[in-house]
Design a protein around this nucleic acid. Structure first.
Ligand SMILES: [Mn+2]
Ligand SMILES: [Mn+2]
Ligand SMILES: [Mn+2]
Ligand SMILES: [Mn+2]
Lengths: 216, 216
DNA sequence: ATAATTAATTAGGACTATCTAAATATTTAG
DNA sequence: CTAAATATTTAGATAGTCCTAATTAATTAT
């Protein structure tokens, strides 16, 4: 399995997490920042290797073997992100690019021991769950802040968007994972929200609210 | 700089550490476990990039830029080896293959913080010195056990051969870096040595003695 | 139902890194 | 000093990944 193959499988898995239907060539191309023709080349290869199911013009879906591989890469990516934050004191907006490289290091022993060294973490710095060694992957039932009822409260447990732009917005406004958030009011006009973060009042746009996961 | 280019530069540097003359195509091919024709292809490329000096049929040598790159890769390799042993409890014969991959991860911040996390180590698990961030590299004056005078003593500070075969021999015979070694006697017949390791008597072959560095 | 639009594939090419086999240069031995 | 042996380079091929441009299939709008 080459790094490129691993990246494609991971992308297909992540696109399937939300949509669940078969994944289109263009969707993969957009996520991988590559051209549709390159995607077609690769999906033929992955299909030959029985890592995905592919019907021309109808999109792809992962086989069991393909899904296990994708989860393994996701596991490595997220464990390395935890390492970078917990042990090397990176901020949560600095880790992604480096983890994109580290996830392709080939050594089962390495990842086992890294997991142990980190104390078997269950989530990464962005609140995403870490698949277990055997490929088990419990998706939390996560609710977006934008879907909360006015007056209810919950704990901020994750971000949907992991871009530097969004994460540094979070830092600037001192909202962190684990913080208690109360939804005070919604503006009719633009959908912006009045919230309390650890008893500190704050007003945020609806775009922000659509990217914050809350556990009630 | 691709991983392959980095590997070639590192190989050329290491071949030059001992010989100091220009490095032959075949020597590089042997070290890289590849074919001489592949080496010719790559040295043309490295020469075009001014990373090495190349005269057809006359071998190559590193330019200043090439040497800095080689030392940077060596630094990463050795820092990762320290990490694997100190933090993830790998044994010193298990680290090389993984470090060969990790040394190509591209992130200056990563390697700086790793260095700090490890407490700025000066040598790797095999006793090899770690080049500094700015490319300074102080070679220790190392003497081989085979060159010691009978009756003298010293500290074992490194191994010349880092193969699993040799390192597990060391473990089996309980010889570790930092141990005090006294040369008691040399056998005329086969050149084998009678030594004391931390006051424990031991007999070793001359091949072993040729691969152990001692500081007097 | 047909036309226009969008999505996907194919054709053909570039670039990297590797190899085998053949040709050529250099070194070594007699 | 020549001949044999060795070292090195060149020629030509393959495999992987990505690209642009052209073609074909599927979807949508009229
Ligand atoms: Mn990431
Ligand atoms: Mn993450
Ligand atoms: Mn090593
Ligand atoms: Mn080493």
């Amino acid at each position: 399995m080459t790094p490129s193959e691993e990246n494609y499988l991971k992308a297909i898995y992540q696109l399937g997490e939300t949509s669940k239907a078969s994944i289109s060539t263009n969707a993969i191309a957009e996520k991988m920042k590559t051209k549709p023709s390159s995607v077609t080349d690769m999906i033929k290869k992955l299909s030959d290797k029985k890592l995905i199911l592919y019907r021309k013009y109808k999109g792809v879906s992962l086989t069991d073997v393909g899904r296990i591989s994708a989860l393994s890469t996701l596991r490595k990516h997220r464990l390395w992100e935890v390492f970078l934050v917990e042990k090397l004191h990176f901020t949560w907006d600095e880790v992604h690019e480096v983890a994109e490289q580290l996830e392709h290091i080939r050594s089962e022993q390495l990842i086992d021991r890294l997991d142990q060294h980190l104390g078997f973490p269950r989530t990464d710095p962005h609140g995403d769950p870490i698949p277990s060694k055997d490929g088990n992957y419990k998706k939390f039932i996560k609710k977006l802040l934008s879907e909360m009822a006015v007056g209810s409260e919950g704990i901020c447990i994750g971000v949907k968007d992991s871009s530097t732009a969004f994460l540094s917005f979070m830092d600037k406004n001192r909202i962190a994972l684990g913080d208690k958030i109360t939804l005070l009011d919604k503006e009719e006009f633009d959908g912006s929200l009045h919230i309390k973060v650890k008893d500190r009042p704050l007003q945020i746009s609806s775009q922000i609210a659509c990217n914050l996961y809350i556990e009630l």
